[in-house]
């Protein structure tokens, strides 16, 4: 039965590197530095706060990579779901309960439901149309904050959010907050890496690679894109909810297109589709943003330049650079002895 027919072409020798070592190394480095951070910045509470913001940014970046990195759908309005989570969790904690175990799941479920309805329309579009529609969606959410300003506080933002509790205990110390946020990041990261190994995650990559072919092997591309969109929105809303509870207030800025642009930059900076890369991208961006903007008001010019440079020189982002350095190091070591 199994007859092999030799092709009359030269055999290709480009073996595909399936090494997981760079992923693993990056993951472990991140885990160790991240988890021990509160211990070596005890004298500098501001740094810990900045790190907490970086962790939240990392969760949002991860959520966008779930969509863009897996299915190739480019969202220019991802802040919509981040802001949605922030405002909804903020309103819930003011009007309903400050218990995280209640309001965070509620927020995620609500975001997923709305995303499923909106996404059912969005994922039928491809390329530019999808990107523009996501931008439009985030602008609608942005406008809604002002329309409902008696609830949301409009331009002043949503203020006076009570201290959040976790299983009845008030979470007040900045160390506790940091570890909580960090724990959520690690679990989300683990989940995203796990998804990549499942049949669903692999079918997503098929869609990213060649949507037409994917549908002709029986992949329901619309349904799978929608699943990615809903997961992505859910995780972004979780990041938003954590942000508002941590920060104690939220302003409409989180829904502004500029925020969406930043989230996209985290992902591109780190490396689209690499899962771990955007997490680093977000962390690096958050720290750079703070320090560079304290030197110069024109920090956006430098960031714009960096962004252009990354897209042209290193389209694989930081993660791509890291991987090629690793590969060069490895082959170099193999050859010269």
């Amino acid at each position: 039965m199994t007859s092999s027919i030799a092709m009359q072409s030269k055999p290709s020798s480009v073996e595909m590197k399936q090494s997981r070592t760079p992923y693993l190394a990056a993951f472990i480095l991140l885990a160790i530095v991240g988890a021990t951070l509160p211990l070596w910045v005890t004298g500098n509470p501001f740094l810990l706060m900045l790190a907490s913001h970086a962790v939240i940014a990392a969760i949002v970046a991860l959520s966008l990579d779930l969509l863009t990195g897996n299915t190739g759908l480019l969202s220019f309005g991802h802040a919509a779901w981040y802001g949605f989570g922030a405002y909804l969790a903020g309103l819930l904690s003011k009007n309903f309960s400050a218990e995280m175990v209640l309001i965070i799941p509620l927020t995620i479920v609500a975001a997923c439901l709305v995303a499923a309805v909106v996404g059912a329309i969005l994922v039928r579009q491809i390329g530019k149309t999808f990107a523009i529609l996501t931008l439009a969606l985030s602008q609608i959410f942005y406008a809604l904050v002002f329309v409902l300003s008696d609830q949301t506080g409009g331009e002043d933002g949503l203020q006076g959010i009570p201290m959040a509790t976790l299983f009845g205990n008030t979470v007040a110390s900045s160390q506790a907050w940091y570890w909580l946020l960090y724990g959520v990041l690690i679990i989300s990261l683990g989940g995203a890496l796990y998804l990549r190994t499942t049949p669903l995650g692999r079918a997503w990559l098929a869609i990213r690679e060649n949507t037409e072919r994917a549908s002709f092997i029986g992949v329901n591309t619309g349904a799978l894109k929608l699943i990615a969109y809903v997961f992505s929105a859910g995780l972004a809303s979780l990041a938003g909810a954590l942000f508002v509870l941590f920060n104690g207030a939220v302003s409409p800025d989180v829904l502004h297109w500029f925020e969406s642009g930043k989230i996209l930059m985290y992902v591109v900076l780190g490396g689209v589709g690499t899962i771990v890369g955007p997490v680093f991208g977000a962390a690096l961006f958050t720290f750079l943003e703070h320090y560079v903007s304290s030197y110069t008001d024109a920090w956006l010019i430098y960031f714009g330049g960096l962004f252009v440079l990354i897209v042209i020189v290193a389209p694989g982002g930081l993660f791509g650079i890291g991987r090629s350095i690793y590969a060069r190091f490895k082959t170099g070591k193999g050859q010269t002895t």
Binding site: A203, N220, L224
Partner: peptide, 11 residues
């Protein structure tokens, strides 16, 4: 990918 799809594992 096609084998998994045939086996109904896409989701």
């Amino acid at each position: 990918l096609a084998v998994r799809s045939r086996r109904g594992l896409n989701r």
